[in-house]
Amino acid sequence: MEFYFGLAQIIGIHVILGLSAYVLMLTGQLSLAQAGFFAIGAYSAGILTVLFQFHIVPALIIASLVAGLFAFLIGFPALRVRGLMLVVATIAFSEVVRLFFFNLSWRKTIDGIEAGPDSTNGFREIRFFAANGWEPYQVTLFVWLFVALVMFLIWWSDRARSGAVLRAVGEDELAAHSVGINITAVKVAAMTAGGMIAGIGGALYAHTATYVDHLTFTILLGTFAIAYPILGGLRSVFGTLLAVVLIQGVLVEGLRALGDWRNILFGVIIILTMNLKPGGLFDTQTVQALRKGLAFRDKGAPNA
């Protein structure tokens, strides 16, 4: 049972990470900096709960704001580049963040134990949940509360005008510009929102894993973050959820029995999916097929 709670927590955290990239991808920006914001969130929340004895909720909020602030600052210069150059610029940013935490050492004695980020040895003492006697199911619920919150907010803003504005910028910047949308504001807002969401994910990750080090936040994590929305499709947030469940639940955990050969098969499956369904698993075609299937059963529907 412990195992399934752990898996549910990982899936929840990766959904948050994927959604942070999803918001950016709606505006047509592809960012590998999500791993960097995730790291900022993880380390700042960990430092707050361990070194300053904060409760988890304010620590999460502050971590999210810190990550959002960095994303806001990155948003302006990132406007100057687009496409693949933006990808490389964000890789550079996320590596700068990772190497900063690789060098960060901030040890303090708390309750007789020395704790805090210890450069290459990582940050080992993030034991808020264990110290306060949280059961695994409570932690899982806590994580999924935030997943639900983030998903709801994105789903809701997608149905409002803001979603249309984001998608307009993503579809055609020039057209969006000429109907009076302030592209700078939209892109920076999306970057900030993405950073805040990734910061929440990182903070939750640090506390469920109880241990973070710089190797967690490599380019691999950033690639996973953008692979989820690509695989799930940009139609709706549920695509990202589906992609995370598929990758983390089925491919990573389910193929564990294969041992060393897992990574080889994993790559082939993802690439085949990308080839066969370039718009993502949850694209318009799939949704229409689903609708048709449901409507077929519902014979009384007038427009079936």
């Binding site: 592809l30 496409g83 693949l84 990808v87 380019i219 690639t223 953008i226 692979a227 690509i230 990574n263 080889i264 994993f266 790559g267 082939v268 993802i270 690439i271 990308m274 080839n275 370039p278």
Partner: peptide, 20 residues
């Protein structure tokens, strides 16, 4: 195998191949 207009997808998949 991946069409030209989705350059990003081929970048991501080239990264996935990396693991292989």
């Amino acid at each position: 195998a991946i069409k030209r207009n989705v350059a990003i997808t081929s970048m991501v998949s080239s990264f996935v191949i990396w693991m292989q």
